[in-house]
Design a protein around this nucleic acid. Structure first.
Lengths: 201, 201
DNA sequence: TAGATTGTTAATCGATTAACAATC
DNA sequence: TAGATTGTTAATCGATTAACAATC
């Protein structure tokens, strides 16, 4: 099944609402209710839900637990995804401690840095390795995903090392646009872009 | 001038490239080069640049410094924007220390938490206040932007307090969809949604 | 039944891409 | 000049919204 990117984004937002409703003990929810919370159109919600092959009930809405499970299944939330964090600075360490990743199947299996003081320390039971160990650890643990949080100036050279080590997906939290071969998937988190987009008039 | 949201997002990405080119001492750049780095179409780059009223030169491209300045001017990078961080946990503290915000005019002028141990401490010269002081500090400092990094369960009640205190923009890093009046601007950072979108097949 | 809600098609809207003349 | 690149229009594509029949 081929789900458009925009729809995937919205499905994860519906999922957040469903988790919340489940906690509050609500068993059903209408497309109109989800649409109101997200400030989007109700028919779009219904169309998105159709894409994950979940059916609602006229006059009642959608089953909260059933829809939540179906989204998790379609988006493969539960499938374990191992990742490295590259750069054990403020942001890298915060992400290493961020417990919410686990709910979506994302497991941090190690951090990398070049600062001798940090090497061999552990954060949240995850060890910090030296960058020189990257190729070996990548192969040993079969990791394909890297979360890049190094200082801006080192982003490109770190990315080059990642690619050489066999990393396929780079989640880029730096404000550097990486020059990579087209088979490598890069997602620019671009925090400041998001901020400006939302505060701009 | 009215710039579409998608264009604003791309303009910030062009800006990242320009900063990098400037450091490398390059004085001009073509639309094709920017397009290649971002995996988009070159005519889109040219169209976006037209929107910020910058002109290129045939056979040469765009002036790196001039275009960078023009983007900064149009997107009001330099205008100071004061903000609070709500929740002095891992992510909140990391963002308080994140030096890149300053380059875009975003100044953190205080953090808020409810944990007695943290109150009155300082992070990166920014004081941590108790949530009870929020209404007073918001008015005193004229702050309109809040960065929400509290635990998921407290996101809605924190948002309610923010709105009561006069906050107009909420940059939401929690996985909770906030129920707010429509005049309040919310940007859901939705980290896990971004992650799933990019690793999904 | 009446009313609320889904499912779905058609209409609209906006964003992206293709094409190419103009320029230096 | 020839060639590279911009600026811009037209064509295409995809996403959103409107409308409404079907359902319970």
């Amino acid at each position: 099944m081929n789900i458009p990117e925009k729809t995937i984004q919205r499905l994860t937002l519906y999922h957040c609402i469903l988790v919340d409703y489940l906690e509050k003990g609500k068993s059903s929810i209408s497309s109109g209710e989800m649409a109101r919370l997200l400030h989007i159109d109700a028919s779009q919600v219904r169309k998105d839900i159709k894409l994950v092959k979940h059916e609602g009930t006229c006059r009642v809405g959608y089953d909260v637990l059933g829809l939540k499970n179906q989204i998790e299944h379609c988006l493969a939330f539960k499938e374990p995804k191992h990742a490295f964090i590259i750069g054990a600075g403020n942001l890298g360490l915060a992400l290493a401690k961020y417990s919410n990743f686990g709910n979506y199947g994302l497991q941090i299996v190690g951090l990398f840095d070049t600062d001798a003081i940090k090497i061999d320390l552990s954060v949240n039971d995850k060890k910090i390795y030296h960058m020189a160990q990257l190729p070996q650890k990548t192969e040993e643990l079969g990791v394909e995903i890297a979360i890049l949080t190094v200082p801006r100036q080192h982003a490109q050279s770190a990315a080059d090392m990642l690619i050489q080590s066999g990393i396929k997906y780079i989640w880029n939290f730096t404000p550097t646009i990486l020059d990579v071969p087209k088979e490598i998937q890069v997602r620019n988190e671009n925090l400041m872009g998001n901020f400006l987009q939302f505060t701009y008039k």
